[in-house]
Simulated assay, not measured.
Amino acid sequence: MIDADLMLDNVTVRYRSREVIRNQSFLPFKAGAISALVGPNGAGKSTLLRAIAGLVSSTGELCIGSTSLSSLDFEGRAKLVNYMPQALPANVAMTAIDSVTAAYAISRRSAGSQEANTQAARALSRAGIAELAFEPISRLSGGQRQMVAFAQAMVREPKAYLFDEPTSALDLHHQVAVMRIMRSLADAGHIVVVVLHDLALAARWSDHMAVISGGSLVAEGRPDDIISERLLADVYGVDASVGLWHGTLQIAVKDLASTRLVARPTGAGRPEPCREAEGPRSGR
């Protein structure tokens, strides 16, 4: 797989009549790594993810390597970037395997039906839900539909995966299973960008974290380097303790706090847009 990062420079995103993200630049979301977007409700995380996928309008530079995503039509962008929403609709009459087969066929228009069925079955097995293959999606629980959506995303094999709160409807077992799959995708050289509300989960699994609040980038870097008691008070308004337990970052929220957020300027020291950065790409 060609090594190329996802780069966002001076990005502004509007949703309906509201400016959700304004003139924000990020460090590269690297191939071979998991990048987590975190922050309070309404911060703009999901909207930013949708902008990368081309589902809402944006300005600025959004590139994978030297390829500007805004220069591609929807089909061209979909071949490079796959967006997985927070949940599949509940009233879908298709079976799980039919929906995954359709996802594969859309991304591989020349594929035959046998190939599509085989790849769909593999994706469902990888997601741990092979036994649900012939169940109608309308009969599945929210968590099961989430896993079907995960299989749909995996079967397309894009360069970049965009996951919007993929663990929100999952129990602890399936949360870990999903994060392990994301790690395997990153290890295979893909770009993985995920919106997560669970900071402990994000800190445990991500290599790069971007904290967004009020449409602005507040902090970014390795989770261990940027998550602090001050940041949690500023961004989330909570009094919390942060520490390591068996080498894993742990967060214990004690009470509400009241501090004023001061967002730092962004954009300094970043690579030129739409240029492939040099050097190896690796996860943690």
Rank of each mutant, 00 (worst) to 15 (best):
A31L: 07
L27Q: 05
D73F: 13
S107P: 12
F29Q: 01
A90V: 15
T95Y: 13
E135S: 15
A121Y: 13
L48W: 02
S58Q: 13
G54T: 14
E75F: 11
A121R: 04
V20K: 10
L27S: 08
R108G: 01
T118F: 14
A133P: 07
L69H: 02
V81K: 00
P136I: 12
N117F: 06
R77S: 02
T101A: 07
C63H: 14
G112S: 15
S46E: 08
K79P: 03
E131R: 08
A53L: 10
E19K: 06
A111G: 08
L49I: 03
S46Q: 05
V13Y: 02
N117W: 09
V100S: 01
P28R: 05
L132W: 12
Y83K: 00
I52N: 00
A127H: 02
L48A: 11
A127K: 00
T47G: 03
G65W: 14
R22V: 02
I97N: 09
Q114D: 10
V92Q: 14
K30W: 12
A130T: 10
I21N: 02
A90R: 15
T118N: 02
M84T: 11
I106W: 15
S68R: 01
Y83V: 00
A93D: 01
L62W: 08
A51C: 14
E61H: 14
